[in-house]
Nucleic acid binder design. Structure first.
Lengths: 148, 148
DNA sequence: GGGTAATAGTTGTTTTTGTAACTATCAAAG
DNA sequence: CTTTGATAGTTACAAAAACAACTATTACCC
């Protein structure tokens, strides 16, 4: 504690890295498609896991349900996704991409993949893999403290 | 690219980890002192590096200058920090903690240190150290793309 | 079944944030 | 000096966020 250093405080360092790492990428999809971050996340969750409900996205990504709700509305207006009906539980709305949503998703996924490659150059493939594992361990430990 | 996985996309994973890791800690200082995250960051920067100007905090923490400006106003109203004058450059305001700010800082630093210890349990000391290094490397690579 | 609690999702209201424009001061060049 | 451009910090306004309250549906249980 005597030698506590802000720069080595994990939540602080993690935030800095996350913020810096996402900034350039965020600008690129914002410029190209005018997407916000929650919209990007919802799009990717639906693209990768769809059909998926808002609540499932929330549990998977820790995104708050109001953010998801509004992002879904926007993406729907754009005709990038549609809400289906779940006859077994009429509260749920399984979400799926439309063909044009799929097209945008594919393009954005390519952008993400390229950006990830560029980032990984900084540390190398093997360290990138162990980084992912380490981050998951931290998330797991923190999860007990989540709460929506 | 064919096997691009959202869960392994570094900016996404980093954000999840940062968000989860900071949430519990954020709640604890919010409950105890009613601090926002920018206020916490400014307090820690001034506590650790003061006297320091808003601009120097911005460069160090990538916090936007308007956030810093507002956080400084709040912390000043609380009498936790004061603005000094820089006679050599009257635009700058070197910031310093007051005695009561120092007291709060010491308490919060203890909380942060304890929380960090708890988090590090998830991965072990040595991995925590290499994690910090890896994160810095990612930040360095991303920095070229920063822009305030 | 009928009542109570829980869940999925939305909407309204208040804070916080991002962006740009602004003031004040300093630096550089002629 | 004085003009031009840069920098530190603040403020105004619009966009996005948090938070709480709400509707509709389902689950539980007596």
């Amino acid at each position: 504690m005597a030698n506590f250093d802000l720069e080595d405080f994990l939540p602080y360092r993690l935030h800095q890295a996350a913020e810096l790492a996402s900034r350039r990428f965020w600008r690129s999809y914002k410029e190209k498609y005018g997407l916000t971050r929650p919209e990007w996340r919802v799009l990717f969750n639906v693209g990768q896991y769809g059909p998926i409900s808002a609540n499932e996205i929330s549990q998977r990504s820790y995104l708050h349900k109001t953010k998801i709700s509004r992002a879904v509305t926007k993406l729907e207006q754009r005709r990038w996704l549609r809400r289906n009906e779940d006859l077994a539980d009429r509260r749920r709305q399984p979400l799926e991409l439309t063909p044009s949503g799929r097209k945008a998703f594919d393009d954005l996924r390519k952008m993400a993949s390229d950006y990830d490659d560029w980032l990984v150059e900084a540390i190398g493939q093997s360290k990138a893999k162990s980084l992912i594992k380490t981050l998951r361990a931290i998330e797991l430990k923190s999860e007990s403290a989540a709460g929506s």
